[in-house]
């Protein structure tokens, strides 16, 4: 571990620790570093992913507000210091791995939708998210239709009818609607060394 490799998180100890904590091999962690480098240098080249950089990658523009992007960023940012570091990036992407258990994916989405972090997904939160997606996609819905969609959703998901969805109710709901977790699996992650083969020029180890 030279000071330079420590700085760039490329030292073998760091890489193998990350591999042991996640579903990635050491070479796959190195390949993810290639993606991380690209994202973290797109606006400010400081080895950290800022919200604007994630926004630029996902929405093709660093400007404007997107509720869902904010939530994704906050969940990636484990240390809650306003930036995504490499270890946080690898930890979060591990949940998106095709081999990650559905329960982990379901928990991640639950946290994502639990906007106020109360341990429940409340009707008001769902309404806020539906309004946000309508604005994002330039769709218009009457208030009546919006309430009808919320009624239908809660009739299906909120089995104890207390006006909010608990984690247990959410698990049952996603098991009935597995397509809701579709975004949570990134097939690219199974072949990440093929997607970013340039890791080979910097590798510290042969898996």
């Amino acid at each position: 571990c030279s000071p330079e490799s420590q700085k760039r998180l490329r030292c073998y100890d760091n890489l193998s620790l990350l591999a042991s904590e996640t579903r990635f091999s050491v070479n796959e962690v190195e390949a993810l570093y290639e993606l991380f480098k690209k994202l973290s240098s797109s606006i400010i080249d400081d080895g950290l992913i800022h919200k604007e950089e994630l926004q630029l990658a996902l929405l093709r523009s660093p400007y404007g507000e997107n509720l869902f992007l904010d939530r994704v960023f906050d969940l990636f940012d484990e240390k809650r210091n306003g930036v995504i570091e490499f270890d946080e990036f690898v930890h979060a992407l591990s949940i998106f791995h095709p081999h990650a258990p559905m329960e982990e994916k379901s928990d991640f989405v639950f946290k994502l939708y639990d906007l106020r972090q109360t341990g429940f997904i409340e009707r008001e939160e769902v309404k806020q998210m539906v309004i946000a997606i309508l604005m994002e996609s330039d769709m218009r819905l009457s208030d009546e239709l919006l309430e009808a969609i919320l009624d239908k959703t809660f009739a299906d998901a909120d089995t104890d009818m207390d006006g909010r969805i608990s984690k247990e109710e959410w698990k049952v709901f996603v098991s009935k609607h597995p397509s809701l977790l579709k975004n949570m699996t990134l097939p690219y992650l199974k072949d990440i060394t093929t997607v970013f083969p340039s890791f080979i020029f910097n590798t510290e180890v042969e898996d």
Binding site: L58, L67, L112, L141, L145, A148, I149, L180, N183, Y188
Partner: peptide
């Protein structure tokens, strides 16, 4: 599917902010 038959989470899951596959596009 039309919004009437959709549940709210189906709509929400279509946000581009949630589509991390975009990160891997060259």
């Amino acid at each position: 599917a039309s919004p009437v038959t959709m549940n709210a989470f189906e709509l929400i899951s279509k946000s581009r902010g949630l589509d991390l596959a975009t990160l891997f596009e060259k």
